[in-house]
């Protein structure tokens, strides 16, 4: 369990990093917190010829409120543990705050980065589903400039994103929670800290006793984070109730075609998707009324 030979760069500035990426993009891999990439290299499953370590780029860290408080921006290299404990996140993006303890273990969150998890695009990871449920957007930078990618366009397949080889994820912007909103996250994993067998993130917005907006995203049921439009369709325009939640949750199976693996069959995953969707919607509705 030793990696093959690779070249290692640790640029001091973002420009330097982007130049290296422009030069080596196809053979290079960006090293953020290393919590997924380094094990994959030790197993020789990933064999990058070049590693570009972003650890020194303070430009990519930090959490701030933007647009008069409409959005919260999180630098891609911000450690997950920092996000978890940050007062701005707790107050304005509480779904992220609530989800963070489900991400692996504190030791891993101390090293793992927010953007690293998003860009790694593991279908069993929590943060991509949360990004999708929140409808956030991703800032991609390259030597040639920058562009914004909406969450629903960011994930393109198994461990794949819309980032080009010469681009890196610099930051994400997440909408702040507003009045009348409820949210929740839950998952089922074999042990605390494991990749989930299934997980669900949900966000609801109600006005005048009716669901005005809803978004639901699941993890571990497809090639990437998976939206649940069938659930949303049933919720929107209705007054939230236990029956509505239950009917909506049952519809989640229309939106997923989950894989089977050693720990969960497709049938069990579908069952979990329904159960967990009902649980998060119930919790989210409680938060609206509470």
């Amino acid at each position: 369990m030793k990696p093959p030979v690779f070249d290692y760069f640790a640029p001091n500035t973002l420009d330097e990093a982007l130049s290296l990426l422009a030069e080596h993009g196809d053979e290079a891999k960006v090293l953020a917190g290393g919590q997924s990439l380094v094990p994959a290299m030790n197993f020789r499953l990933a064999r990058p010829e070049i590693l570009i370590d972003l650890g020194r780029l303070s430009e990519l860290t930090g959490i701030e409120r933007l647009d008069g408080g409409q959005n919260v921006r999180i630098g891609a290299m911000t450690r997950q543990r920092t996000v978890e404990r940050h007062p701005l996140v707790r107050k304005h993006v509480p779904l992220v705050h609530e989800t963070m303890p489900w991400v692996a273990h504190p030791q891993i969150r101390n090293r793992g980065t927010f953007g690293g998890s998003l860009a790694h695009a593991d279908p069993a990871a929590e943060l991509p589903a949360v990004l999708l449920a929140l409808g956030g957007r991703c800032l991609a930078k390259s030597r040639d400039g920058e562009r914004w990618i909406d969450a629903q366009d960011f994930y393109t397949g198994l461990f794949e994103t819309a980032l080009e080889p010469h681009e890196l994820l610099a930051a994400v912007e997440l909408p702040s929670v507003g009045p009348g909103e409820g949210w929740a996250f839950t998952e089922m994993s074999r042990r605390h800290g494991d990749f989930a067998l299934c997980g669900v993130a949900a966000r609801l917005k109600a006005r005048d006793g009716v669901v005005e907006e809803a978004s639901v995203a699941l993890l571990s049921v497809g090639d990437g984070p998976t939206a649940a439009p069938s659930v949303v369709e049933i919720l929107v325009g209705q007054a939230p109730s236990a029956e509505l939640v239950s009917t909506a949750a049952d519809a989640v199976v229309n939106d997923i075609d989950p894989p089977g693996d050693l720990h969960a069959t497709p049938a069990y995953r579908r069952h979990l998707a329904r159960t967990l969707t009902r649980r998060v919607l119930t919790a989210a509705v409680d938060r609206i009324s509470g």
């Binding site: 067998l197 069959t265 049938a267 069990y268 069952h271």
Partner: peptide
């Protein structure tokens, strides 16, 4: 046993 196995046994 496992959660998945219990699900299978019951269903």
């Amino acid at each position: 046993l496992s959660p998945n196995r219990l699900f299978e046994l019951l269903h």
